[in-house]
């Protein structure tokens, strides 16, 4: 009897194990997101916290006031972008430009991490088993140092009288320092450097699973090494490339620190815009609306990726 009761009312071990990540998501993702969503519909206020409550209790009446002006700002900007001449729109529609810059940066970051990460992941996966772990370790080791320290190290390398310029001048390749820091180049470099492991690890996980006999079979049927790569290896590692790209693209869109430190504020990304609104402008509702839209933008690739993975899993069964 007791055993039966216990079985009915106590969650089973399996449920509990699955439950932990769900709880984590609930408390650290869903809940904060609802706060942000709520704030995005509030009116800014010079108070603590700096926005007015959505639900007001005045004169024995409960009123809910949803203020959509912050979203209106954003949609007006998009309209303006379509109607106004390019130069003017670019000047006025700062949010749209910031979104666009962020997406562009995330795209190129993904592209370059893929181009650089693929050969690395491929060669680690093809290395003999004993050295694979060591090689993976080498990919990870830089990330044992603080993130900020690594970004500052890049500043030291790239600045006008930094390591790289000094070496190039000593070698006589250039005669005066080339500006590398605070350029689109330095931002992209910092992004690619920092996000590379997020590309390499999922790629490696997929590439290492590939059946070596498939390559032998292709060679046996007359395929030369490059043909084998393009017709067998590459298509079969599609899932890994997509997984890696998601791991890089999604956080890269909202990246704030690297553009701020290595870009010197020359180019504005959505992360910087967000930070400005939360901080200097003290416009939390606007910042929240920007964050909500950013999430919606990212939802499309996430859903698509999920679909792809489900299909892939079905195919494997």
């Amino acid at each position: 009897m007791m055993a039966k009761l216990r079985a009915r009312f106590l969650p089973k071990g399996r449920t509990m194990v699955i439950g932990i990540p769900y709880l984590w998501l609930l408390f650290f993702f869903m809940l904060p997101f609802f706060f942000v969503l709520k704030i995005s519909f509030a009116q800014p206020d010079i108070a603590q916290p700096p926005y007015q409550p959505l639900v007001k209790h005045e004169d024995n009446k409960l009123t809910v006031q949803l203020d959509t002006t912050k979203y209106k700002t954003l949609s007006d900007e998009i309209d303006g972008f379509i109607e106004k001449p390019w130069a003017q729109a670019k000047e006025e529609s700062q949010y749209v430009v910031a979104y666009w810059n962020a997406l562009k940066l995330a795209f190129f970051t993904t592209l370059f991490t893929l181009l650089i990460g693929y050969p690395i992941a491929y060669n680690i996966a093809r290395a003999d088993e004993a050295s694979r772990n060591t090689l993976l370790m080498l990919v990870m080791i830089p990330f044992w140092t603080s993130f900020l320290l690594r970004v500052y190290a890049w500043i030291g390398i790239l600045k006008d009288n930094g390591v790289l310029n000094n070496i190039l001048m000593a070698m006589g390749v250039i005669h005066e320092p080339v500006q590398m820091l605070y350029t689109p180049f330095s931002v992209l470099l910092g992004m690619v450097y920092n996000y590379l492991p997020f590309m390499i690890l999922p790629l490696y996980a997929h590439l290492v699973k590939l059946d070596g006999r498939l390559f032998e079979a292709a060679a046996d049927l007359g395929a030369k090494p490059w043909t084998i790569f393009f017709s067998i290896t590459l298509p079969l590692s599609k899932a890994g490339m997509i997984a890696g790209s998601m791991m890089v693209f999604i956080p890269a869109v909202g990246e704030y620190v690297i553009p701020a430190l290595l870009g010197g504020g020359e180019v504005v990304f959505i992360g910087n815009k967000l930070m400005d609104d939360f901080g200097a402008n003290l416009d939390w509702p606007q910042a929240s609306a920007v964050a909500v839209i950013m999430l919606l933008l990212l939802l499309a690739p996430i859903v698509w990726f999920h679909r792809f993975e489900m299909k892939q899993r079905e195919a494997e069964q």
Partner: peptide, 15 residues
């Protein structure tokens, strides 16, 4: 890839 031989692999190795 140049040999006039072809192999049927153990567990087939179909693409």
């Amino acid at each position: 890839y140049r040999r006039p031989t072809n192999m049927m692999f153990q567990s087939y190795a179909l693409f």
